[in-house]
Nucleic acid binder design. Structure first.
Lengths: 268, 268
DNA sequence: GCAAAAGTGTTTCGTTTACACCCATGC
DNA sequence: GCATGGGTGTAAACGAAACACTTTTGC
């Protein structure tokens, strides 16, 4: 087999990308991992990623690999940095450029289809391949820092969400608990949330939900008691079912204005 | 000439490092640039940096290049990130990992010796080679963000400094003005500054200064009036001469404690 | 109807801001 | 002795934190 060869005057490290994808199921912050099919670290879990092509930026490469390996088609990632320890890959000198990404609940559902990809709650993450444990630690530090200045929460929630959902997310990321009343005040005072009117129930329940809320009442009223648990079991891993409460959406325009004037700061 | 060749199955980008070195002369924040001696961008100014060796991390490579090109022998740098635009180097695909470093006043004096290295005040920086203008913008954003969480100021000042010096530095970095009294309060309340006692004048003026403060008085008293300007001209770029006021030093141990408990925040 | 979560205001406390005068030094 | 910069305290305004009860929803 005649493979093309590439020759350089000086040795060069290989360059890969890795992407730490965060998702939120309403309770736990999760990350998306791939089970490695080949050595080294065969059978171990690792971040989706791979070798960088010559005609793409690191961002583009990371997004391409993410799609190839997990089916997730995201648009925004944020660079964490380059990891360049000499022995981080036992095969040869490999430098990786790490990113993190935020997946919305609706995207998370679809992502699970892909081959060996699986979501892990942060406190259930196994030992990872290469230096990915270290990369994860650094990425978490970065996420916790960024969340004070950027509307990260909204990248992890669907178009519409409730304040308590948002609060649980902040608590999951930062590992602390907030007073509900103070959280309401603080987040609403920023002005970056719009209350969503109820006049269209289709939006209520997100794209996955097709019944109107009146239909639920009708359903529950007409179906025998023993059939209800089955319905709710079938939906138990889909939180869109229990979307009660006032829904809000993220007002990006307003946020960009505040950001422009350096006037945005979320102090928790 | 028989040069060693390195051959790979897939093409690889070249990897370089670049280092944005900040210094502070008491009034302006400055950066250290190198005049390029070869194409591309021959004659243009650029950050010190160069190709990464296979047996060193990016950090080590950046520090090595910094020493080779400017004579500055620093120990700490902070990664800003990888820059990977496909066409950022007209010769070929080159990815650079950028860092920033902080040089103390005493180190800055020595750094000037090196060949083509020169300090530029931030508002006098010329058009830079490659994408270094962009890298500088990103690095400044990073520095302004970091300064809220890390004692960056102290990396740019000598062992001992006065509160007004520190204030000027913060003002230079953030581009704003602070009320003097409030700055005193805020910075002292953190508890990370120790007041330095006057009982040893040698420390007063830093390592470059060998005269005791009484000697300055004696000098000025005994030398004829016309000779003073010459003395002060010779020293005019060396602010250690006019170190008046109460001096403080950075209490790293105390800072590390606060940092440990996530209790450090410098809110300006 | 019972349990769990959503929604809402007020008071207390600490932090931030604004502001003016005296002192020491350099020249 | 004049100009420049260093050093200090207090009052007002604002934002953060603590706190409990009622309503709605799910089942």
């Amino acid at each position: 087999m005649e493979t093309q060869q590439y020759t350089y005057k000086y040795p060069r490290p290989a360059v890969t990308t890795d992407c730490v994808v965060f998702g939120f199921d309403g309770h736990d912050l999760k990350i998306l991992l791939i089970e490695r099919g080949i050595e080294p670290f065969k059978g171990a879990w690792a971040f989706p990623g791979g070798f960088l092509n010559m005609d793409e930026t690191a961002e583009q490469g990371a997004l391409r690999e993410l799609k190839e390996e997990t089916g997730l088609d995201l648009r925004y990632i944020k660079q964490v940095g380059a990891f360049s320890d000499v022995d981080r890959d036992p095969r040869s000198r490999v430098i990786t450029i790490a990113f993190y990404a935020l997946a919305k609940k609706s995207e998370v559902q679809g992502g699970d289809d892909a081959a060996k990809a699986q979501w892990f709650a942060l406190n259930e993450v196994p030992r990872l391949a290469f230096d990915h444990d270290y990369i994860l630690r650094k990425t978490m530090e970065r996420l916790r820092k960024d969340i004070h200045f950027e509307p990260i929460g909204f990248g992890l929630l669907d178009e519409q969400f409730t304040i308590p959902e948002l609060q649980r997310l902040y608590e999951a990321i930062l590992g602390v608990q907030f007073d509900r009343r103070n959280f309401y005040k603080k987040i609403l005072q920023t002005g970056i949330l719009d209350e969503v009117e109820d006049d269209d129930d289709r939006h209520y329940y997100g794209e996955h939900r097709e019944m109107r809320s009146m239909d639920i009442g009708a359903l529950f009223g007409s179906i025998a008691a023993e059939s209800r648990p089955s319905y709710s079991a079938a939906r138990s891993d889909d939180d869109s079912r229990r979307r009660k409460g006032t829904r809000f959406s993220f007002n990006k325009k307003r946020y960009d204005q505040l950001k422009e004037d350096n006037n945005f700061r979320l102090e928790f």
